[in-house]
Simulated assay, not measured.
Amino acid sequence: MSISTDLSGRVAIVTGSATGLGASIAKRLAEAGANVVINYSRSSTEAEATADECRAFGVEVHCVQADVSEDADCRKLAQVASQYGRLDILVNNAGITKQVPNHADLAGLDKDDFLRLYSVNVVGPFMMVRAAEDLLRAAHEKTGIASAVLNTSSIAGVTGIGSSVAYAASKGAFNTMTLSLARALAPAIRVNAICPGFIGTRWFKDYMGEEKYNRMEASVRAATPLQHACDADDIADSAMFFLTDASRHVTGETLLTDAGTHLGFAPLKAR
Rank of each mutant, 00 (worst) to 15 (best):
M1A: 14
S2G: 10
S8A: 10
G9L: 03
R10D: 08
R10Q: 15
V14C: 07
G16V: 05
G16F: 06
L21H: 11
L21N: 05
A23T: 10
I25L: 02
K27L: 11
R28A: 15
E31K: 15
A32T: 05
A34W: 10
N35S: 14
I38T: 03
Y40E: 01
S41D: 12
R42W: 01
E46Y: 08
A47T: 04
E48P: 04
D52F: 03
E53R: 11
C54N: 10
R55N: 11
A56M: 00
G58P: 03
V59Q: 09
H62G: 13
C63G: 01
V64T: 14
V64F: 10
D67P: 01
S69G: 11
K76M: 12
K76C: 06
L77M: 06
A81F: 01
R86T: 12
D88W: 07
D88T: 13
A94Q: 09
I96R: 12
T97Q: 12
V100L: 00
P101I: 03
P101F: 04
P101M: 04
A104P: 07
G108K: 05
G108F: 00
D110Q: 11
D113F: 02
F114L: 04
R116I: 00
Y118H: 12
N121F: 08
V122R: 07
V123S: 12
P125I: 05
P125D: 02
M127D: 13
V129M: 14
V129P: 01
R130F: 00
A131S: 14
A132N: 11
L135N: 07
R137V: 06
K142Q: 14
S147F: 06
A148D: 08
V149L: 01
I155N: 04
A156T: 08
G160A: 03
S163K: 13
A166T: 13
Y167E: 10
Y167A: 08
A173N: 02
N175I: 09
T178F: 02
T178Y: 09
A182L: 03
L185T: 02
A188H: 08
R190C: 02
V191K: 04
N192H: 02
C195Q: 12
F198S: 02
F198R: 04
I199Q: 10
G200V: 06
G200S: 15
W203T: 15
F204L: 11
D206A: 12
G209Y: 09
Y213M: 13
M216V: 14
A223K: 14
A223Q: 12
P225F: 09
L226K: 13
L226P: 10
L226D: 13
Q227F: 01
D231N: 14
D231V: 07
A236T: 09
S238K: 03
S238Q: 08
A239G: 07
M240Y: 05
M240C: 10
F241H: 06
F242N: 06
T244V: 06
H249F: 13
E253S: 15
L255P: 05
L255V: 13
T257K: 00
T261Q: 14
T261M: 06
L263S: 03
F265A: 14
A266E: 02
P267N: 11
R271D: 15
